[in-house]
Design a protein around this nucleic acid. Sequence first.
DNA 1: AAACAAGTGGGGTGTCCCCCCACTTTTCGT
DNA 2: ACGAAAAGTGGGGGGACACCCCACTTGTTT
Lengths: 182, 182
Amino acid sequence: MRADAKRNYDLIVTAASEAIARDGAYASLEEIARSAGVGSATLHRHFPTRWSLLQAVFGGCVRNLAARAGDLLAASDALDALTTWLHEVTAYATTTRGLADSLLNEPAEESETCGATLVAAGEPLLRRAVDEGSVRPGITMADLMILANGISLAAQPMGAAKAEQLLTLALRGIGPAVRPQP
Amino acid sequence: MRADAKRNYDLIVTAASEAIARDGAYASLEEIARSAGVGSATLHRHFPTRWSLLQAVFGGCVRNLAARAGDLLAASDALDALTTWLHEVTAYATTTRGLADSLLNEPAEESETCGATLVAAGEPLLRRAVDEGSVRPGITMADLMILANGISLAAQPMGAAKAEQLLTLALRGIGPAVRPQP
DNA sequence: AAACAAGTGGGGTGTCCCCCCACTTTTCGT
DNA sequence: ACGAAAAGTGGGGGGACACCCCACTTGTTT
């Protein structure tokens, strides 16, 4: 890639980060180009679709979360590691404007999407918890991601605290407290 | 209201129902006006915001669901009645294009919103299940609605079956099957 | 039947996404 | 070091949209 192309690429991603943090995933692409100091055609050449731009903006966050999943594999309690990670994902998706929309609406056909990365990163955590017997088998990480995502999206207006509470609720179920078994 | 005003109002709602069923909650307002045979200004005068139109379109469905909640109050098993109703709401919101978006994005400040109607309708079902002891106290119907809504929204691309499965998961929790207690 | 209020739609403005095309900048072989 | 090919750029136009103003039409009322 040519030097100036990379320079513009970075300028666009930086400007997009700010605009999306302010206006959400549907921030105006023209305004992003304007504040990056490039023509709208340039933005459109680097990022043919809105989601390719969102992917570039959120790629870093997603990689961080994936790495965090790797770290948590070393924790002693598998169930706790899984729920901790899901809470972190939910908190991030709720707090970071546009992330939840981005994860939900990205075209499902492509591989290398943010959602697929997160699912792949969380899979070992889930498998470990299932092996341990603390999570019922038959549950897939894709299911849990959709759940966490949906909660993030629906609870976004209420703030991260509500999202976390709802995630806790969904992971526990609505039934009465179960007495710890011998 | 004048006779022709009501006539146009109905024409617009009918056209909007079709357009939204086809294109989702963000269907073009101009095209709705065009296919209703009225000017865009007329549409905009009857429905100042997109959500006021969505409310008119989905008001019937919402009232049906609310009535269904009333019927289920007569069921013998309170927990079953609650979960059945939540499943019906989820199925409806997942199947009917635009409903989930509409419920989620409607301005929270107004009363008489579709979401508020559903919450109010479900409240007795929840209270009965809590009194019965089959649902842990501290859970509000608003929480459950957000949950059901989020699931509908996030699972929409995968279809109603996936949404129902995820709702079951969320109501049960992820833990291993609990042996029926004496 | 006539006057008044309520309702209507065409057209204008500003914004947005997307694309084409003439021009500029970087890179690389000599 | 230099000039040509290749890669990149941005201005501007087309099409669609939401929203609003205003002269005109239509229904209602006494």
